[in-house]
């Protein structure tokens, strides 16, 4: 039994930018409710300047992360799975607060761990599947290799953990860095996941997580000229067209919201959506 006189130590849910956990630059927060409408916690309500700072952090992290060997990125993603597994109970608790039953919450956390492992395995196989050795009429080797596209803006879906992992992991496994707007009504697992990421040898800035209003943050992310791709998984259907329009300013690759069954085996689509193909000619015999 806990000592009745002891005060509970409550966690302050902050943002995750550049490997650190700052409060929103704006100083704002919003109330997150549990499934029954009771008070759960205050989460930071990020502003457009937090978006800007997060993009700066993601851009700064990109050269280092994309230069890691694919094998090393796979190791780090696997490490994320290990760390997540170690916090299983905490995530189950957070998901149950949001209304999931015990079994469903357990399945969701296991699914998230397995999703990291699944994508970790893809790290050093992606080039073999998405790349090619091309036959050419001349004394050259000709290779097409997939390259990360840069910084990816991710509007995470409502599924607070498995959905989040299912959109973040494929974005970063190939060497991209990500700025993620977490599920608006269920942001707490995202920030707890940030604690997992921060202790998994993932370099600071590779994943940046913002909590707050999607409608407020998504347009800034979509129009930001230093963001190279946009995953609209969690965007409201009526906002998609406007966000795509905003993203056209610098020809961002845009992944539209699709089927939302996150428990299914994902396939390679989310990974290849954020790749560019580089083709190299190399003389034979040199």
């Amino acid at each position: 039994m806990p000592d009745a006189t002891r005060l509970t130590v409550r966690k302050t849910y902050k943002l995750f930018i550049g490997g650190a956990f700052p409060r929103s630059e704006s100083g704002r927060s919003y109330v997150v409710d549990d499934a029954k409408g009771g008070f759960l916690a205050n989460a930071s309500r990020a502003s457009r300047k937090d978006v800007r700072d997060a993009v700066t952090a993601a851009r700064k992290a990109f050269p280092g992360w994309s230069a890691r060997t694919a094998y090393n990125r796979g190791q780090i993603l696997y490490r994320v799975a290990e760390m997540l597994e170690g916090r299983r109970d905490q995530f189950v608790g957070e998901l149950r607060d949001l209304g999931l039953g015990k079994a469903a919450a357990g399945t969701a956390v296991d699914g998230a761990v397995d999703r990291w492992v699944w994508y970790a395995g893809w790290a050093d196989k992606l080039a073999a599947v998405a790349g090619s050795a091309n036959p050419v009429a001349g004394p050259f080797f000709n290779f097409s290799t997939p390259e990360p596209t840069g910084t990816v803006g991710v509007i995470a879906p409502d599924d607070p953990l498995l959905g989040l992992v299912s959109v973040v992991a494929p974005a970063i496994v190939s060497g991209n860095t990500a700025v993620v707007v977490a599920a608006e009504r269920a942001p707490l697992p995202a920030i707890t996941l940030a604690e997992v990421l921060a202790t998994s040898d993932l370099p600071g800035g590779v994943v940046n997580i913002l909590t707050g209003s999607r409608a407020e943050l998504a347009p800034w992310l979509a129009s930001h000229m230093d963001v190279n791709a946009l995953d609209l998984a969690g965007a409201a259907a009526e906002d998609v067209a406007a966000l795509e329009e905003a993203a056209a300013g610098n020809l961002k690759r845009v992944l539209r919201p699709g089927a939302q069954d996150w428990a299914r085996t994902p396939g390679t689509g989310r990974m290849t959506a954020f790749l560019e193909t580089k083709t190299v000619w190399h003389p034979v015999g040199v």
Binding site: V55, S223, D226
Partner: peptide, 9 residues
């Protein structure tokens, strides 16, 4: 322009 720019430009 009303949108954030980047060092690429």
């Amino acid at each position: 322009t009303g949108v954030y720019s980047g060092p690429d430009y």
